[in-house]
Amino acid sequence: MSMNRRTVVKAIAAGGALIGAGVMMPRAAMAAWAESAFKADKQDAAMNALLGSTDTAESAEVTLKAPDIAENGAVVPVTVRTKMANVESISIFVENNPNPLVAEFKIPAGTEADVSTRLRMGKTSKVTAVVKADGKLYSAAKEVKVTIGGCGG
């Protein structure tokens, strides 16, 4: 009986410690969400707001994997990968979406510049991946045809 009580007390103490750790997590330290870039309705404006420039160089070293034809615009699988060194971020734009910026991924040192995700496309559009490496912008683009848009409702 006394053993049971002991385990229970221990469990409560451990649980309390866990909750405490959760509260102390530095939430404020998270990077600010680039609101102006995500709200922009033109690709150039979004790029400017996010990366400070629209001056991207098409590069064969940036690989953008996306389907030629997306039957369902609500789920378009996309992979961006590059072998470049010092990659800082990867961002994905869909030109004809109401808000062209889809997502931005920060790549800290030690993380491979190889990210897969799934995105929504309202209609047929050019998909552009922009890689920021060594302070410069490199891009790859691909036209993806959409049969059924993913933004309707």
Binding site: W33, K106, L119
Partner: peptide
């Protein structure tokens, strides 16, 4: 150490 950070917009799939 932060190994990955993503900012997502509304055009990311459900």
């Amino acid at each position: 150490k932060v190994v990955f950070e993503a900012s997502l917009g509304t055009a990311v799939s459900k």
